[in-house]
Write a protein that binds this DNA or RNA. Structure first.
Lengths: 184, 184
DNA sequence: GCTGGCATGTAACAAGTTACATGATTTT
DNA sequence: AAAATCATGTAACTTGTTACATGCCAGC
């Protein structure tokens, strides 16, 4: 009997499934991997990774095997199945749907008329600093994976991040000019 | 006794509270208002707006009054209280915390090595189209509120959106060149 | 010999979404 | 007169987060 492949899984399941294409791994491994790679555009709580793994096994998209360890807590290793690979490809080939983008910063900015001008300036300046820092982090990562052909797709996502934080910084600069220039 | 102002509320509560600064409104009104204004950076389900309203009342940050209507279903109107205004200001003045940004598109791109080159190109091209459309929508809105001083902060958020979709489009162009240029 | 971090996970809770409910009014 | 839309909201469910649990090992 085929597995319950018809169930509609959320993107988070596929994020975990995708990480499993890099090889057999424990929940803990994936938590670490996610922190190092997906972090910028998909940052789940670790408990979520564990529950996605259980769901993938239930759906027949991954297998689980228990490994006893003497020095450490026992662990469970997960491996993607052929059905899992097919499901992943199908998902990859579907058009992403409109992404609602959520920003506490923009929310505060939108209600900026309730703030003093100083506070509003501080808000934008803080955002500029944060963006600048993020930019530097991404550039460091970029330098590390530079030229390595294994990271072709990853590099694209990295450049996406860089482009966005750069846009952020220059938007901040313009906004600051506007806010300082406009009659108070 | 003062109200339970110590409870830590989520940003969504403040989004609703912020909208109440525009005047007394029903849940329905706020749903519509959110669709027209916050939509780009904060897009809650309508049922969430209703539950935030209940929470605001419970916390003493808004008041509720029932209005009977003959032709339509009865409604409840909400109004921000002085405590609500204070709470809003306090929240506005706190530094936004690091925003985890979530993107189905980037997730798929990151696993791009599992896709054929054609699919990968289609993914990026689709993203370019979507960004271009969003850009046009925002520009239309921009033309409508142009120069109106009531929308000073709103205009800044709009320009933020425009900057980002423009960055999107040019990133897509670069990525497409890379993908087409690189050896298959 | 205590403290903090690694390695591995679960349980309890909060946030957010989709589907449902209801009756009038306008459109086809 | 049937279908769609407006106006108003609730219930049931899914997703995602924070807090908790456990034992080893390394550094102070």
């Amino acid at each position: 009997m085929g597995s319950a492949e018809t169930e509609r899984l959320p993107n988070s399941s596929f994020a975990v499934l995708g990480m499993l294409t890099f090889g057999e791994a424990s929940g803990y491994d994936l938590v670490k991997l996610a922190e190092r790679s997906l972090e910028f555009f998909w940052a789940p709580a670790k408990s979520q990774i564990y529950s996605e793994l259980r769901r993938l096994v239930a759906a027949g998209l991954a297998t689980e095997r228990e490994v006893e360890q003497a020095d450490r807590p026992d662990k469970r290793l997960y491996r993607i199945t052929p059905a899992g690979e097919r499901a992943l490809r199908r998902w990859l080939e579907e058009r992403p749907e409109h992404e609602p983008f959520k920003s506490e910063f923009l929310l505060k900015l939108f209600f900026g008329h309730q703030m003093s001008r100083e506070r509003l300036l501080a808000l934008v300046e803080g955002h500029r600093r944060d963006s600048q820092e993020a930019l530097e982090r991404l550039r460091e990562i970029g330098a590390q994976i530079d030229g390595d052909p294994r990271f072709r797709s990853a590099r694209l996502t990295l450049e996406y991040g860089i482009a966005h934080f750069r846009a952020n910084v220059s938007w901040c600069d313009r906004a600051l000019r506007t806010l300082k220039g406009g009659e108070g």
